[in-house]
Each structure stands twice: as C-alpha cells, then as structure tokens.
Simulated scan of single mutants.
Amino acid sequence: MQLLGKLEIKSPERIARFLNTEHVGRIATMDERGYPQVIPMNFVFLDGFIYLHSHIRGEKLDNIRRNPKAGFEVDRELEFLPSYFEDPHDASLADTLYVSVVIKGAAHIVSDLAEKSRALNGLMEKYQPEGGYTPITPPMSVLDHVAVIRVSPVSVRGKYKIGQTLAARARTELAEKILKRSSQTAEETLKVMGFAVAGGKLEMIDEPVW
C-alpha cells in the first residue's frame, strides 16, 4: 500500500495537464448483456468534465441511456525498460514507465445547445489549435447531426511511474541507461523524469514529485 501511495498523482493540476495533452481516451459503458464496452475516442477535459463527440446513433449511446455508470481511462506509455537494465538473465525484470488517469462517473448525452456548442468548440481548440474553423454556436444545424457525451467524474485517480520511488543516484543511473539505449521516446521520457540532456550529458532539473 505504501508503494501504491508513491505512485499516485496527488496534484489535480497535474492530472488536468495530462488530460489536456493526451489525444485518445477510452470510455467504458455496460451493454445490454452486462458486458463492458470499451471504445477509444477523442475527448476534451473542460470545466471538470470529460466531453466526447459521437454519431447520433450507436451502441454506446444506447448503453448510456440504459445505464449511466461509465468509466474513462487515459494512459501514456513513456518508456519500456528492458530486463537487461537489471539482469540479462531474468526477463521478469522488464518494466514500463507510464502515466495514467482512471475516472469513474456518470455519462450523460448532452441536450443543452449552449453546453453542446461549448464542448465541441473545446474539442476543436484542443485538436486544431491553429484555428481555421468557424466556432460553433447554438443556432447551427450541425448540432442536430452530432451527439455530445459528458462524463461527470465521481472519482479521479492518477498514477505515474517515472522513477520517483528510486533514490536520486539510482534514478540518475536509470536515466543514463535510457539515454544510452536511445529509443524514439527516450528524450521525452527523460524530460518527464526531470532530466535535461545537454552535450550528451544528463542534468537533473526537476524533482519528479506529482
């Protein structure tokens, strides 16, 4: 339990920042036979709610009308840590650095046109920040041809594993191994871990405590 506490994101601001930078989340609803249906979707975190847009007909909408209880999950795999970082003879030591947020709450199909417009504009601002579109307003007919789902959180839990449970020296050694392995995600992972790379050398610039 102590380790789980160290992996939990304590900062609501960090959770909001993570949700606002990720592009794909997964909504889980219950189908008519009681099985969870999980669908990856674009989303925006706005005013404390998750908003998603959808076709006006579909199984997930039927699920929500029947049972509003829903889950929503977002994750980012930062870096796979090969087992040989620890022991070349023990494959069980392979690990992954990651960030994730899991939300439980109530899903609702938005009918208010002002809220619907605000959610769709929020989605556009997130995914098309360069602009080049006409903002949506309540009188527009496009609102009749798209559904907007709001997930109202009952609980929000964030977890992260970026070496924060390690002593400073061990965390630096892990960062050096990641730098040497030089995967496609290494530079971004090191940044999240609190390291900068200058001239091929590491510099610790931030404590990874969220």
Results as ranks from 00 to 15, higher is better:
E115L: 07
D144N: 15
E79Y: 15
A70W: 01
V74W: 00
N67F: 00
H89P: 00
T137M: 03
D75V: 00
L93F: 08
H108L: 12
T96N: 02
S92V: 10
Q128P: 00
E125W: 03
R118K: 15
E115S: 07
A119L: 09
L93Y: 07
R76C: 05
T137W: 00
V101T: 05
I103H: 06
R118S: 10
L81K: 06
P129E: 05
T137I: 03
F80G: 01
R118T: 05
D95G: 12
S111M: 13
V102Q: 09
H89F: 14
G131L: 12
G71H: 05
T134S: 14
G71T: 09
D87G: 10
A114P: 02
L120G: 02
V110N: 12
S83M: 03
S117E: 05
E73K: 03
R65S: 10
A70S: 15
A107L: 07
A107G: 08
E73M: 13
I103S: 05
F72I: 08
E77K: 10
T137C: 04
K104F: 14
V99L: 09
T134Y: 03
H89R: 15
L143I: 04
E73V: 04
E73Q: 14
P135H: 01
R76F: 06
T134R: 15
R76Q: 10
D90A: 12
L81E: 06
L143P: 07
D112L: 11
Y127Q: 08
T96G: 00
Y127R: 08
V142Y: 00
G122D: 02
S141V: 11
L143V: 03
F80Q: 06
H89L: 15
D75L: 04
R76S: 08
A119S: 09
K116T: 11
L93H: 07
I103C: 03
K69W: 14
Y84E: 15
L97W: 02
K104V: 07
G105N: 09
A114G: 10
V74N: 07
P68F: 06
D144K: 13
G131N: 06
K104I: 08
S83W: 14
H108P: 00
L113E: 14
P135F: 00
L78I: 06
K116I: 10
N67Y: 01
I64V: 13
E77R: 11
D75I: 00
Y98W: 04
V110T: 09
L78V: 01
I109R: 11
I64S: 13
F80Y: 13
F80H: 11
G131I: 12
Y84Q: 09
P138D: 01
L123M: 11
N67T: 02
L81V: 15
